[in-house]
Design a protein around this nucleic acid. Structure first.
Length: 511
RNA sequence: GGCCGGUUCGUCUAUCGGUUAGGACAGCCCCCUUUCACGGGGCAAAGACGGGUUCGAUUCCCGUACCGGCUACCA
């Protein structure tokens, strides 16, 4: 019997969830669901100095928006609760101490000042960042340099200490990464990472290993920035005697800034004018809000889709995938090794595609919100549905519906008189006055009939329809944009059409 | 500096030794549209470099260059 697939996403609740984070969740989720496995959300809040109020709730809301529901989490519970590392604190110490007993780790009593002094003292041009490693540990205050009695005394006296892993000398740590293949490290190059902090909390290194073991995680996907610490984790799995239960690893490529190089950061979004966080993040300290894809007007389907395509494809030319399709087609061995630069233009294209594909009915609710924000009240659902159908092809972001369709619900805010005035004459004036009468009397009110009527009347007046269409458009929508004029007239109705024509006729007279 | 990873059009990418190196976004041109878009058609645009292996390398191996990640009692 094969083990049930269990994956986890383990964010730190320190702020907004950025693109890279959400993509990591997504790949975890896709892999789990494809294999009928479980997706666990675990909160890594071991650094109490970085804890940010509200960040955890934000993570839940954001995942929910994306359509990702954890099978187990602090919120949903589960057989391996608690799912917050701070609540599992008492659990970690025993393992760190066992490692000391087994000779794989040791107590270190160096103060932050001691460490800083060491780093300055041993800093050279060739070695700008000295490590607490197999060489330097002999010069520090720890249970290796101290006698057992001295160590015991310090411990008994309650001296603050950390537990560090004792990196073996010149061993090769090899592991298989599902994306990168075989990766090797020489332990002599590695430093003695802290496992248990002075406050009793584990560091990430200890916590992931212990939690992944206890939560029976089978596959561990995380960002490429973790690759350098993978050997520490590997050694821990081995030293703790759990090697046979170790998950398979996959280090995902990074999402890079669009210009230049380097990891995409929140700053890049601010600088270049696009969101980096999935949804709005309001910093509780400064009250500053950082815009998210959601609020910018992205559909969750598009967001998930574009994220999936950053570093993965199914080998065909298909680019539009629903979550269901992704679950069916995703494969970890088609994930790239190299990082991908984020392209906001392409991101918008995905959204446009999803807006076009999505039934108007399903768009109504979110579009309503943007109208409300713009101070436009939409009471007529039927009108809204028609308007959405008419303009969706020309909307890339949800707020575009406001600029593209507000004239369906209210008088145009601006009327581009300048576009008609120069070519305006009495003949046109007469035409439109007659058009008003004809429209008031016409038996039916359908776009095609209105167009026919309009064109016949133009012919009768010996005017080219082309000269009259633009004025009519300006009268109805206020500017040179929008769907077909007769569709608009048909949609807003007889009364409204006639009244708008009259109004603009009056304005032209005045000018 | 050290360690690890990466490298196909401007960008995201296809290619699992033999292709006119394909698609998409962006750009440019044309058509459609008596508005703006959508849409359709077209143009331009790539294997970092140097060695091998091979009848044949974008593809496999090595080196170089460049880019990135890590180098905290942060994750």
């Amino acid at each position: 019997m094969t083990k049930k697939i269990r994956v986890r996403f383990a964010p730190s609740p320190t702020g907004g969830l950025h693109l890279g984070g959400v993509r990591t969740v997504l790949f975890n989720y896709l892999f789990a669901k494809q294999n009928g496995g479980d997706f666990i959300l675990r909160i890594e809040d071991t650094d109490q100095t970085r804890f940010v109020e509200g960040a955890e709730a934000y993570i839940f809301n954001t995942l929910q928006w994306c359509g990702i529901v954890p099978d187990e989490s602090p919120l949903h519970g589960g057989p391996f609760a608690p799912y917050r590392q701070s609540e599992r604190k008492a659990n970690y110490r025993q393992f760190a101490e066992q490692l000391v007993i087994d000779g794989f780790a040791y107590y270190a009593f160096d103060t932050p000042a001691d460490l800083e002094a060491m780093r300055t003292e041993y800093k050279t041009a060739e070695n700008p960042s000295p490590q607490y490693n197999h060489i330097l540990r002999d010069k520090m205050r720890n249970s290796i340099t101290l006698t057992p009695d001295e160590t015991a005394t310090l411990l008994a006296a309650g001296t603050p200490y950390v537990i560090r892993i004792k990196m073996p000398l010149n061993e090769t740590v090899t592991f298989h990464d599902m994306i990168r293949g075989e990766v090797n490290f020489n332990t002599s190059q590695l430093d003695d990472k802290v496992l248990l902090k002075a406050d009793g909390m584990p560091t990430y290194h200890l916590a992931v290993v212990v939690d992944d073991y206890q939560m029976k995680i089978t596959h561990a996907f995380r960002g490429e920035e973790w690759l350098p610490s993978a050997p520490v984790h590997l050694l821990l799995w081995k030293y703790l005697g759990w090697k046979n239960d170790m998950p398979e690893w996959a280090h995902l490529p990074l999402i890079l800034k669009p210009d230049g190089n380097g990891k995409l950061s929140k700053r890049d979004g601010d600088r270049l004018g696009f969101p980096v966080f999935a949804s709005d993040w309001i910093d509780p300290k400064t009250n500053e809000t950082t815009i998210g894809f959601k609020e910018r007007g992205f559909l969750p389907e598009a967001f998930v889709n574009l994220l999936a395509m950053l570093g993965w494809n199914d080998g065909t030319d298909q680019e539009i995938f629903s979550m269901e399709e992704l679950i069916a087609k995703f494969s970890i061995d088609r994930v790239h090794k190299g990082g991908a630069k984020f392209d906001y233009e392409k991101a918008k294209w995905y959204n446009h595609e999803w807006i076009k594909r999505k039934p108007s009915k399903e768009l109504e609710l979110s579009i309503q919100k943007y109208f409300a924000e713009a101070g436009i009240t939409v009471t007529d659902d039927v009108l809204l549905a028609k308007a959405i159908d008419l303009v969706k092809d020309r909307c890339t972001l949800l707020p575009d519906f406001v600029t593209q369709a507000s004239f369906f619900f209210q008088l145009p805010e601006q009327i581009d008189i300048a576009a008609v005035k120069p070519k305006w004459d009495e003949k046109k004036n007469m035409f439109f006055n007659e058009l008003i009468r004809a429209f008031e009397l016409s038996a039916v009110w359908e776009a095609t009939d209105l167009e026919t009527e309009f064109k016949e009347m133009a012919a009768a007046h010996q005017l080219k329809p082309g000269e009259l269409m633009l004025p009519l458009r300006i009268m109805l929508v206020g500017g040179k944009f929008g769907p077909g004029v007769f569709d608009i007239a048909a949609t807003i109705g007889r009364t409204e059409t006639v009244s708008r024509i009259k109004k603009v006729l009056g304005l032209i007279e005045l000018n």
